[in-house]
Design a protein around this nucleic acid. Structure first.
Lengths: 229, 229
DNA sequence: TGACAAATGTGAACAGTGTTCACTAGTGTG
DNA sequence: CACACTAGTGAACACTGTTCACATTTGTCA
């Protein structure tokens, strides 16, 4: 009876071993210099053995992207609203968490997004993250903080901004970027503030810039619907 | 004497034949299902012959991305300012042209950006496009239309927005996006308007939305610095 | 014109890839 | 004990990118 459970656990254990080793080898050796045969040798199995656990190399990639997507979703939906927190603040913190995850885990972000649709199958992972974002926007609209326009339009525009800055920074690290925190703040503030009913004054004046306010900048906003500062 | 020129022309002709065929095969057969051998057969040569014109497969990819980048740069810097045109309008039109090129030539955009650094060598192509963008922003600042902050910060935030919406639309066409023109307009308007000294009223009110104003929306703005509407 | 040299293309080979398949060794069930 | 089933293997197949000795064309110059 429970021998089946034991076997399945063993099986999933080896699957995880394969996936973990694959991810490591993959991010280190690039993409193409990563081979099933070297992977097999690294885990001490024959190349053919892998096919008992995954039905192809692309299947492995699909599982990797699904994993990375789950982590991304989890990270960006892990922000919990404080009591009576401004929904705009929650929204901004969520986007910040999304970008921060991508920047701190560039391999995951690369695998999840920039792999070239090799694994766009399955339960459509991006949808879940997107739904969470839209829900937060809806809460901003309900609270009278945003214009009651199509929340899909707003969500997608914010997603575009967040993905743009993340993917550029992740994918072209050799470009002479300005300070990451400044750039991320600017992109998110621009994208979000443009949607607000009463856009708050942006700190764009000159030298009194916002330094060291990476994730906090959103949290210190007023907690209720307020007029412009 | 001129036999050398003739030879070089012939050589570059065959190089172009190889590149063109490679690009076609590449965008059709995916990336990995594209092989030097099938390419050789398609142009009627032996596989080994290709190595007289390119020193490796990656070299071919590098040339492809350079080509695509040149086209992207050319497209986005092809907008010429009309006499007395608002520099903000020029800026927006440039960004629109950038995004439009990416959407109308998704293969080029994919090759240029989303190929995974396989060809990040050479004279650093992205730099050129970026410099043009920054010059346009500088003109907005000089005209008193934008806050005189670090133009690199502004340029990079706009680039992030433009790249974000373009790459998402190009890379995940199966996602249920809203109308492309609406989304692109929203992203660009948000990103640019947030940087203006006197942000013009965005048409976000409700149902009187901006339809069929894809590239015109920027051009019909007031030509001089004006108060908010 | 004929000898030489350079350019151009080729077939065969090498090492490596993803994938399949007949096969063996081990394990729990009747 | 016999049976079915699982996990794993080595050999093979059809590929891949790349190299190299060789053949063929082509232009130059004595």
């Amino acid at each position: 009876m429970n021998i089946q459970r034991i076997r399945e656990e063993k099986k999933s254990e080896i699957r995880n071993l394969i996936l973990g080793t694959a991810r490591k080898s993959f991010v280190r050796e690039g993409y193409e210099n990563f081979s099933l045969r070297s992977l097999a040798q690294k885990i001490g199995y024959s190349p053919a053995a892998i096919y008992r656990y995954f039905k192809s190399k692309d299947d492995i990639f699909a599982c990797l992207t699904a994993e990375s997507f789950d982590l991304l979703i989890k990270a960006s939906s892990a922000v919990v609203p404080e009591p009576d927190e401004d929904p705009v603040s929650v929204l901004k913190r969520g986007i910040h968490a999304y970008v921060a995850f991508g920047l701190e885990n560039p391999d995951h972000y690369r695998i999840a997004f920039l792999l070239g649709g090799r694994a766009a199958k399955g339960p459509q992972r991006p949808r879940a993250a997107y739904e969470a974002l839209r829900a937060r926007i809806q809460r901003c609209i309900d609270g009278g903080r945003m214009f009651p326009v199509d929340p899909d339009l707003l969500a997608q525009s914010l997603w575009a901004a967040a993905h743009g800055v993340t993917s550029l920074l992740v994918q072209r690290p050799s470009f002479p970027w300005v300070a990451r925190s400044k750039l991320v703040d600017r992109v998110i503030d621009s994208a979000v503030n443009a949607l607000l009913v009463h856009p708050q004054a942006v700190s764009l004046g000159g030298e009194n810039d916002n330094r060291n306010v990476k994730k906090i900048s959103a949290a210190r906003n007023p907690k209720r619907v307020a007029g412009r500062a």
